[in-house]
Amino acid sequence: MQTLRRKDILGLEEMSAEEINLILETARSMREIMQRKIKKVPVLRGRSVLNLFYEPSTRTKASFELAQKYMSSDSVSVAGTSSSLVKGETLKDTVRNVEIMGIECVIMRHPVSGSSHYLARNVEASVINAGDGMHEHPTQGLLDMFTIWEKKGRLEELKVAIVGDIRHSRVARSNLWGLQKMGAEVVVAGPPTLMPPDLNAFGVKHFTVIEEAVDGADVVMALRLQKERQESGLFPSMREYAELYGLTPQRITRAKEDLLIMHPGPMNRGIEISSELADGPQSVVLEQAASGVAVRMALLYLLLGGTKE
């Protein structure tokens, strides 16, 4: 396959293995540009992109903005707190107004699940979901897969354990869809109260003991404990959570020797992951950040670098 025949990137649930492959292959070519002295190619010259972030973000926002600059597109960024959202304007109105100014692609992060689908249906611009509520974060899933693929040379038949707060995690959802489509075996682990009610839909095994989940794993992915999304009573205390479910060197001894340790960031050090692991030789946390730019450059090219039918 040569072309991504879609207007938007909303989630990995609706994406095929073939499409994911094309994105990863394209990202590999983009990574070379990031290593140049002059990190800029003219491919998206004259195309305009809007970054619309209704939730805080450091890495994803910086990563998208850099990808846009490296591809020579023009972009504007609007943060939720400084925008008309606080004046009560609806999402649809906001984006339609900016679209008429010439925006061809909208990158959006929003606290409500499904918001990017809603937006995509209502505007002509391409929409890239940069995280919608507890639903999906497809570019994070893609950059995680790209990082593993670069390190291991494949995704097929790798065992990946996703550990922590699966319930509130859009990163976990995107990875669950994506990795399984690419032929990896995925297991999840964490307290039963932090498992999503629809876990069966993913067809993955669930463990409550971390040591059992990481047994024979090629990759362990720690998730951020999302303090801002916790209803009370899902677990007794941060300290107890760290004691029982935090990733530590002792807890991963049954994993494969060439284990990769991943975390989408930002990390709560000493809670879901120990500093020893986060900064250790198995950690690819920083590679994940670098992969993010390459993957987003690839997506911008595939969505905007040509004519829309």
């Binding site: 040569q2 072309t3 394209t26 070519s29 983009m30 540009i33 190619v41 003219p42 491919v43 040509g306």
Partner: peptide, 23 residues
């Protein structure tokens, strides 16, 4: 050298060319 990202006809083409690595 892969020149895909420097082409002047991307906006006209219906079939998007695949990007390969410059090395």
């Amino acid at each position: 050298l892969d020149i895909t990202l420097y082409r002047d006809d991307l906006i006209q083409r219906q079939d998007q060319p695949e990007v390969h690595t410059t090395d």
